[in-house]
Simulated assay, not measured.
Amino acid sequence: MIKRYGIEGGKGTGGQSLPFAKAVAADGWLYVSGQTPMIDGEIIDGGIIAQSQLAIQNCLDIVEQAGFSKEDIVHMKVFLTDARYFQSFNKVFKEFFSDCPPARVCCVADLVVDCMVEVDMTCFNKKFK
């Protein structure tokens, strides 16, 4: 069985409706779509620290809404717009995941919204199999 979360009206920049689910669960796995440092369709002001905190928190909120926990996160993908943000992002990452760090990839990429970071998460919990 596949369950989709957040298909009923996710909003992107400028209030546009997003054409994808915030997350999809299947056979114990949860795949969280990439999250940016956005509140109500607007990217927050602030540097890489504030933007990293919100992007991660936005993912964690979706994880929790789907019934998973931080301990269920097995992998993250991180997209930074500048390699110089790497150390600052790692400090934020450690604040969130010091006791249960997931595997991770981090790369530099142009993002389709005007922010410094985007993250996604993959979770697993056998109770959802």
Rank of each mutant, 00 (worst) to 15 (best):
E64D: 12
H75L: 09
S33E: 05
I49M: 13
G67Y: 11
Q53N: 06
N58R: 04
L80V: 08
L60A: 08
G47E: 09
G34S: 10
D40W: 06
I62N: 02
I62M: 00
H75D: 06
Q35S: 14
Q51L: 01
V32I: 12
Q87N: 10
E42S: 07
G34P: 11
R84T: 12
I56N: 05
K70V: 12
S88L: 13
F79G: 05
Y31C: 07
D82E: 02
L80I: 02
Q87W: 13
Q35K: 12
F89T: 04
A50D: 07
Q51M: 04
N58S: 08
L60T: 08
D45M: 13
L60Q: 06
N58H: 04
I44W: 10
M38L: 04
Y31R: 12
I49V: 10
T81N: 07
M76L: 04
I62Y: 02
R84Q: 06
S33Q: 11
C59W: 15
K70L: 11
E71Q: 15
F68W: 10
T81S: 00
M38V: 10
I44E: 11
V74I: 15
K77W: 07
D61R: 05
Q87P: 08
T81F: 01
Q35A: 05
I39R: 15
P37R: 06
E64N: 14
D82C: 04
D82G: 04
H75G: 05
Y85K: 01
I73L: 07
L54E: 03
Y31G: 03
E42V: 14
I48E: 00
D72I: 10
L60R: 05
G67Q: 07
I56W: 07
E42I: 14
H75N: 14
A50C: 07
D61G: 09
D72T: 06
L54D: 03
D40A: 14
S69C: 10
I43A: 07
V74E: 15
S88Y: 11
V32P: 04
D82H: 05
Q51D: 08
I39T: 06
G46I: 08
V78A: 00
G41Q: 03
D82S: 09
K77A: 02
S52L: 00
Q35Y: 02
